[in-house]
Design a protein around this nucleic acid. Structure first.
Lengths: 248, 248
DNA sequence: GCTGTTTATCGTCAGGAAGACGACTATGAT
DNA sequence: ATCATAGTCGTCTTCCTGACGATAAACAGC
C-alpha cells in the first residue's frame, strides 16, 4: 500500500442507505422518504445518511433506522432478545457517477421488520411512507417517477436478498410480531415470494423443522376461522433442508 | 440528507481488499502479501489498495487483482467467456479502529481462481504467496503471526461465502481450468468443504443437473486410472436442488 | 501377459422429503 | 342451523439422496 499521506488518496463521503422491508396487507413493502432538496428533489428515496467519524457502519445504519422509524435494530451477532428488527449489511455501491455532486460510497443495509404503525417522519426526512416494492420497481420505467440515485438497484438487490434468505434461514420470522401463527408466517412467505403455498404442506414443514418454531402456549383467532396455535421463533437460524420456493 | 458541504461530513479513505482463493494440492488456499511498512510491517495481509477517484469499486478490485496476480477478472454480469477469474463483492468493513492511522473503509471482494503458477509479486507488494486458509486462520491464535488489520475476519467471511455458494451455484467450476473432469470438480468440493464425497453419487448429481456441465468431447488421464471425460462449465449458474454439504 | 492399484462410471436399493390433495375441526357470520 | 374461513392431521406418489456393489479402462510391477 502507499503511505497514508492524506493527499495521496481521493476523499470520499461514506453513507449508509437502508432497505427497510415489511409485509403489509399481503404485500412486501419498503420504507421510502421524500427528498426535500436537490438533486432528485421531491422524488422518493431510501432512507440513509452520512456515517459519522467515529461510528461503525452497522452502528450508523442502526442510528439512521432509529431516527427514521423508531425501530431498535437487533444485531444478529448479539443474542439480545426483543422486538428489534433484523439488520444486516447488504452491499456497497460506489459508482463514481452515482451522486452528481461528489464521490459518495454508500454501504446499503437490509432491515426486516414486523408490520409497523404508520412511519413517523423523523430526522431530516420530509415525509415517509411504506410502498409496495412492486410499485416502486415498476415506476422505474416511467420517467421522473423512479427512485432517486441508484436506489432502485439497491432496493432490487435488497428484495432479492430477502427472497433468497428466507429460503434457507428462519429470517421470515423477523417479519412477524413476537408471537405469531403458522398461517401468519405462511402469509409472509407468500407476500415476499409472490406465490401461493399449500397450507397443509407448509404447516408440516415449519412444525417439523426442529428449532424453527417453539409453541408460545396460546391460541388466537385474529385471522378468523379456527383458532390457531401461537408460536415464537426458535433458536435455529439455518433451515436444513431449506424451504423450497415454487419454481413456477 | 444534509447539504453536501465538504466540511459537513468526515473524510474517509476507501480501499478494496481481495480474498483470492484457489485450490492447490487438495487444500483451499488464499493469496497473501507481505507488508513492507508500518503498521503490521512484515506481517501477511490480503492484497488491496486505494480506490481511485474516478473508479468504480469492482473496477478497482479488478485492477488490484491484475496488478497482484495478472489475472483478468471475469465480471459475472458480462457474458464474456474466458480464463478470467470470478470476482464478486464480499462485504464492507469500516470499524473506526480497524486502521490505527486513519479512517479507512474497505470494500472486500472475493475472487475464485483456478490453480495458478507461483504468484508474481507486483505493484507495491514485497512478496506474495498462496497459503492454506486453515493455516492462516489457525495462526490468528499465536501472537504476532496473524494477518494484519482485520484481514482474518475478512478472510473467514470470504471462505464462508465460497463454502456456502458452491452449494447452490455452479461456482465451483471457477476453481477449475476451462476443461476439467468430474473427479477434478469433486476434489474442488472436497478441498473447499474439507470433507470426502462419494464419487458415484457426486458423478450422478453433477451429470444429472441440466446445464451444469457440458461435454467437451475428449478424455484425459492426468489423474491416473481410467480416462475421464472432459467437461466445460454449462450455462446454468443456479443449482436446483443444491449440492448438499455433508453435515458431519 | 497377468495381477494389483487407481480412477471413472453405471446400477440398485432403502429412507426421507415434498407436492397433491382428502378429511376433519373449531371458530364467527348470516 | 348453515355456511364460510382457517387450522391441523393423514395418505399417496414421486423425486432425491446416501450407501454401496459391480464393471471398465488406464498404469505399474512382476
Amino acid at each position: 500500500m502507499s503511505p497514508y499521506d492524506p493527499s495521496a488518496f481521493p476523499p470520499f463521503a461514506v453513507t449508509v442507505d437502508l432497505v427497510v422491508l415489511t409485509v403489509r396487507r399481503h404485500a412486501l413493502c419498503a420504507l421510502v422518504v421524500r427528498r426535500g432538496e436537490q438533486p432528485f428533489q421531491g422524488r422518493w428515496a431510501l432512507p440513509g445518511g452520512f456515517v459519522r467519524g467515529d461510528e461503525d457502519l452497522g452502528a450508523a445504519a442502526a442510528r439512521e433506522l432509529a431516527e427514521e422509524t423508531g425501530l431498535c435494530a437487533h444485531d444478529p451477532a448479539e443474542p439480545g432478545a426483543g422486538n428489534g428488527a433484523h439488520l444486516e449489511q447488504l452491499a456497497t455501491y460506489g459508482d463514481p457517477k452515482r451522486d452528481p455532486r461528489m464521490r459518495v460510497v454508500s454501504v446499503a443495509h437490509l432491515v426486516l421488520a414486523p408490520d409497523l404503525p404508520a412511519p413517523r417522519a423523523g430526522g431530516d426526512a420530509n415525509s415517509a411512507r411504506w410502498a409496495p416494492v412492486d410499485e416502486l420497481l415498476a415506476a422505474e420505467d416511467e420517467p421522473g417517477a423512479g427512485l432517486a440515485f441508484d436506489h432502485a438497484t439497491i432496493l432490487a438487490d435488497g428484495v432479492e436478498r430477502a427472497r433468497s434468505k428466507i429460503e434457507y434461514s428462519s429470517l421470515a420470522t423477523a417479519f412477524c410480531p413476537p408471537e405469531f401463527t403458522v398461517g401468519e408466517l405462511r402469509r409472509v412467505y407468500e407476500a415476499v415470494w409472490g406465490v401461493a403455498l399449500d397450507p397443509r404442506n407448509f404447516h408440516r414443514k415449519v412444525t417439523g423443522t426442529p428449532g424453527f418454531l417453539v409453541p408460545a402456549g396460546g391460541t388466537t383467532t385474529r385471522q378468523g376461522g379456527r383458532p390457531a396455535q401461537l408460536f415464537r421463533a426458535g433458536g435455529a437460524t439455518l433451515l436444513n433442508p431449506p424451504m423450497l420456493r415454487p419454481e413456477a
